[in-house]
């Protein structure tokens, strides 16, 4: 829903990093995206293609999205399970006392520069 805003935010941060490192051209950007980060990869990629063209330093930058699997931990039985398949309820004991271990990340992992 807000992928374009997120893309603008990523671009702004990359421009900042590029300025710090005296980089004039960014050719590739690697993002790590958790399965439950609320950002949809396909929309992100579409917005990316449109938005980078309007920039000075990354008009042709390729985007790589690496997915991080979401895993939830159950406090009652101590087991871990895949969040996307089972949600908030533990599939082993039915408890709701669970919390997300990983999978909500949205990280600029690395950028490739010329």
């Amino acid at each position: 829903m807000h992928e374009l805003g997120v893309v603008f935010s990523v671009i702004k941060q990359i421009e900042g990093i590029a300025a710090e490192n005296e980089v004039r051209k960014v050719s590739r950007v690697v993002l790590e995206l958790g399965e439950v980060s609320t950002v949809i990869p396909a929309y992100l990629a579409d917005c990316w293609k449109w938005a980078v063209k309007r920039t000075q330093i990354l008009p042709e930058a390729e985007l790589e999205i690496r997915t991080i699997e979401a895993v939830t931990y159950c406090e009652d039985c101590g087991k871990e399970y895949p969040t996307v398949r089972h949600g908030k309820l533990c599939p082993y004991c039915g408890s709701e006392k669970t919390y997300l271990l990983r999978g909500n990340e949205f990280i600029i992992k690395e950028i490739e520069v010329e």
Partner: peptide
Amino acid sequence: MGDYRIIEVKQSVFADNN
């Protein structure tokens, strides 16, 4: 083709707004 180098960033995207 020019020389490529990789910058490790590891920055959370929402960190800026926070």
